[in-house]
Write a protein that binds this DNA or RNA. Structure first.
Lengths: 144, 144
DNA sequence: ATTGCTGCAAACCTTTTGCAAGAAT
DNA sequence: ATTCTTGCAAAAGGTTTGCAGCAAT
């Protein structure tokens, strides 16, 4: 469940505060993001938005996702060669993605804290914890 | 420095043992992989191969990289939306990729061992350690 | 009245695929 | 002789961009 202290109205305000305009396409996009806990691809999101506003184009979705990401409202992660997944910003977590079936598991921050620290100390590399996406196999796929 | 107990001849033998044929394109590809410690994109590799054999097509590179990967000779990792990077298989390691400048740092296996174990115990997810690619900022880019 | 946002179509980039000709075994 | 590989060209998948008209402020 993403950050629930974030309301649609607070987002609308932030858009305007940053000089952006609040259009129906943006409102619908925000609604879609709020109504799903899932990690959605741009294509998923487009389909959901189009079920309300069929004329919305994918490029608008991409542009608005990018705007929301710049405002810190949305984050995305990449998994392998496939499409990126988007979701509302919330508690920092990493993503485990099954390379076989696509299942995504969220891993809370403490699991990769010591890794992040060690890598900072020894390699002076600052892990971007919002983008942490690790591929592998979920239990079901691993057992086959 | 990748696995140096691997010789060009042993690779050639493995290709034939698996029913594959040893063509000039494959030899050149193997040479290129041996002559670079870097993480190369398919485009990089194509350029290097073409400097020796200009008529080699990218599709041949992709097909041969895939064959070598199936034989366990090559591994690849994805970083963000950009092209995948390939290199000779060697000691298992993860990759830290600077999302600003593209620098890639190899992290030896022990750094992510405990993470891998914890995630297996708690989420029953088997991390594919060959594909571990983590984005963030290298020291130089972090300081700006 | 501004000027940001939209839909559409086309471009882009990386990778994959179909195919007939050529080459390794 | 067999059948794997190749180069070429085209397709495919995800994302970005140019543009002229429309709409939020």
């Amino acid at each position: 469940m993403p950050q629930r202290d974030l309301t649609v109205e607070s987002i609308v305000d932030r858009i305007r505060a940053s000089g952006g305009r609040v259009t129906p396409a943006k409102r619908t996009l925000i609604d879609v993001l709020f109504s799903s806990d899932q990690h959605l691809t741009a294509e998923d999101i487009t389909a959901h938005v189009q079920s309300t506003s069929p004329e919305t184009s994918p490029s608008t979705i991409y542009r608005n996702l990018e705007e929301l990401e710049q405002l810190g409202i949305v984050v995305h992660a990449h998994l392998g060669r496939a499409a990126a997944v988007y979701h509302l910003a919330g508690p920092v977590h990493g993503h485990l993605i099954c390379s076989n079936c696509g299942t995504t598991i969220e891993v809370p921050s403490p699991y990769f804290e010591s890794f992040t620290t060690a890598v900072w100390n020894d390699f002076h590399f600052m892990v971007d914890r919002h983008h942490l996406a690790i591929s592998g196999l979920c239990a079901a796929c691993f057992e086959r």
